[in-house]
Simulated scan of single mutants.
Amino acid sequence: MPWEAYSGLLNIAGTWMYEAELPVGLYETMAFVATTDRLLVFDTTNQETRETIRPEGGEPISTLTRGERNRAAPPVVTEGASPLVLAPFLIRQAGVGTQAARDSAELVATDAKTGKVAWRLSLPLPDWAKGAPEPLTASVVGAAGNVAVVTLAHKGTVFTNASTTYAIDLTGRRVLWSQETFRAATIAGGVVVGEKKKTASDDYSTSAGYDLTTGAERWQGQEHINLELRPAGPNLLHLYARDRGDYRIVYRRFLDARTGEVRQNDVPAASRCRQDGASVVVCWGRDQVVGVDATTGAPLWQLPDEKAGRIAPQVTTVWHGRVYAKTANGTVALDSRTGADLPTPPVIAPDLLNAFTGIAISNSGDDMTAYQSAS
């Protein structure tokens, strides 16, 4: 794989240094590798970079050189007969005459089948981002139907609450609506779900859902401190937060992302959750793995299991009823419904997988390799 896919993300032990997502999107045998200043269209069948796509509205605010950490969010590949690959860039437009230089975001939509740019859309930065003391991030949270969701936010630690979310009409190529001080986390059942603040400097935040096409508020939860939201399958949201009145009280819940209704309380902590493509969501983090029902969030199995003498593996991805993972004994695959070890271990534990291609850390531990998926 191109070095941009893993630059600054692997440690000397051949494992991930951060919990960041792999900055890659897959469409059949094509891998779309994002950085803050370019999108590579990489053919995994012949190791050829077919296109290098850059923003055209101005110069990228930040660039990536080899060895630096790639902070780009993964591009999003839309579904349907004419799939697009969506990647945003933060750019600086040069001043002309009396017009001062200004920053903006440029959303680039690439045809997933051809690797050619289909269209571009400029997004003006919100007022809070102008002259901001910390660098910005731009990410495509997801897409459903003909609408995509883009979030701009600070990546620093002083003003981490500042964020704006945009809903983009992919057919009309325009902004449908935007919401200030709202950081989107996922899309579920026609609802954009994320963290909402009253103001950018507010210490408290709530989980909230907005209609995907109109931006109308659909629901809003209670105010919390240290709120963290993670998508957990098609309709669930994993919530971690502390009580506003008593910091010692911790909430860990599965919410119905469409309504905000609490599905399960006291769920395991998780840094990542993935649906298995059927009826199970697998969540992992902090040396534990749990499988839950994708509809209700009810637990199905959990590792480690001391009674059975089983440890928690290091999960890499979940796909088509299988949990791919690593242990000190080698790679393993688990049945996502039962958590049982499958009889034949996989050759690799992929970090990203579709029906055509799997991408995994190489045996050397210092780069990444694309493999043909087993039929």
Rank of each mutant, 00 (worst) to 15 (best):
E106H: 10
S62T: 11
W219P: 10
F159K: 10
Q275C: 01
S104P: 00
G339A: 02
G142N: 07
T331E: 07
V149L: 04
Q264C: 11
A340M: 04
N265A: 14
T164S: 02
I91E: 02
S82T: 14
T213L: 12
Y27A: 07
P268D: 06
E51I: 02
Q302I: 03
D266Q: 14
K307N: 12
L352I: 13
G330F: 08
T49D: 03
V149H: 02
G291E: 06
P304T: 06
R253P: 03
S62H: 01
R120A: 05
N226H: 14
V149N: 00
A216F: 07
V158P: 02
V158T: 15
P346Y: 11
G95Q: 08
G321I: 01
R218Y: 04
T157P: 00
R263K: 15
E68C: 01
S362Q: 05
N329I: 03
L84Q: 06
R173C: 02
Y6I: 05
A270M: 06
L39T: 13
G190H: 07
L64T: 03
T110P: 01
A216V: 12
A148N: 00
W219Y: 15
P299A: 08
G339S: 08
S205H: 11
L300A: 00
D103Q: 13
T151W: 01
F159Y: 15
L176C: 05
L136K: 03
T78F: 03
D341E: 12
